[in-house]
Simulated scan of single mutants.
Amino acid sequence: MAQRFALRIDPVAADDSRDDFAHTLTPMDVAAPALSVGELSTQRGDGVFESIGVVDGHANEVEAHVQRLAHSARLCDLPAPNLTQWRLAVDAVSAHAPAGEAVIKLILSRGVEHGPAPTAWATVAAAPDFRAVREQGVRVVTLDRGYDLGAGERAPWLLLGAKTLSYAVNMAALREARRRGAEDAIFVTRDGYVLEAPTASLIIRRGEEFLTPAPSGGILHGTTQLSVFEHLESGGHATRYATLSATDLATADAAWLVSSIRLAVAITAVDGAPLASDRALTAELNEFLLSPR
């Protein structure tokens, strides 16, 4: 199988009742130019995307991802994606996934400036090798996100709950974390509440209960966090959404960053202070997340 494959998607209306959109999916030459200089995804980051984990050709959590793509599109006033078409695109690129772990990217852009239609494409490629970080964990620093917990509800134009292509702040946060001697960061509100990592959701364990920040706080609703909670609940563990402070994180019995590609990674230190980790549970979570679902 090729190490990278891409499809251009000709978006159709969300209310199109057909169930076969194969003719709207066109293979792209991944080595050839594909975007116009007027493309708003590159000029302004004006679009939304999803990253889907693939294991041996099976794409995981597809429904949760396409539903979140639609949610992000709605927040950004983009045309509603036809989810049947996008599910078909996922199936089509999955068939070209390399063996082992891979990643599918779904991208929906506002298109060319002043153009008539959005631009959309799907790609699949081999995923980075995260086996070592899953085993060793990460040190994190907390970084001020610059707004209070209620900002997302007061100012929906900030798009705090959308997975947009505008990732410059997220990447800057990761660079700052490395400057501070850590591998990752967790955003904290001005009033002291934890949110999420730049590319992952946060889960903490307090006693026998597992907690994650509520998405109503203007954070992205994590697809992998949802899967982890379902797995924990099937094992008899209590889970819930909560408003968590920076102190809750620092005093947790254990904590993880979870995402579709890196999967479950234990947090081993917060702002330089060691944090206990549960190696056995981390291994169990990753075994589950690598299974078809």
Rank of each mutant, 00 (worst) to 15 (best):
A32C: 13
A34H: 08
L35T: 13
L35P: 08
S36I: 12
G38V: 09
E39V: 10
E39S: 12
E39W: 05
E39L: 06
S41P: 07
S41T: 11
S41Y: 15
S41R: 09
T42K: 14
Q43L: 15
R44H: 09
G45Y: 04
G45C: 14
G45V: 12
D46M: 12
D46N: 13
D46C: 10
G47L: 05
F49R: 03
E50M: 08
E50I: 04
E50D: 05
E50F: 06
I52K: 03
G53C: 05
G53Y: 01
V54Q: 00
V55R: 02
V55S: 01
A59Y: 04
A59W: 02
A59P: 03
A59M: 05
N60R: 15
N60G: 13
E61G: 03
E61L: 15
V62Q: 04
V62P: 02
A64Q: 12
H65R: 01
Q67H: 08
L69I: 03
A70F: 02
H71R: 06
H71E: 11
S72Y: 02
S72N: 06
A73W: 06
A73P: 07
A73R: 00
L75M: 06
C76G: 04
D77I: 00
D77V: 04
P79N: 07
A80V: 13
A80Q: 15
A80N: 14
P81C: 14
P81F: 07
P81K: 13
N82I: 00
T84K: 14
T84P: 05
W86H: 13
R87N: 13
L88F: 06
L88P: 11
A89M: 13
A89N: 06
V90S: 08
D91A: 08
A92T: 12
S94R: 03
A95Q: 07
A97K: 00
A97R: 02
A97V: 01
A97Y: 00
P98F: 03
A99V: 14
A99M: 14
A99S: 15
G100E: 09
A102K: 09
A102E: 10
I104E: 01
I104R: 02
I104H: 00
K105L: 10
K105Q: 12
K105M: 12
K105P: 04
I107C: 15
S109T: 15
R110I: 12
R110H: 15
G111M: 01
G111A: 06
H114V: 09
G115S: 09
G115C: 06
P116C: 07
P116V: 10
A117G: 07
A117P: 02
P118Q: 06
P118H: 02
A122W: 07
A122F: 03
T123Y: 08
V124M: 08
A125D: 03
A125M: 07
A126H: 05
A127E: 09
P128M: 08
R134M: 02
Q136W: 08
G137N: 05
G137M: 01
R139M: 08
V140K: 04
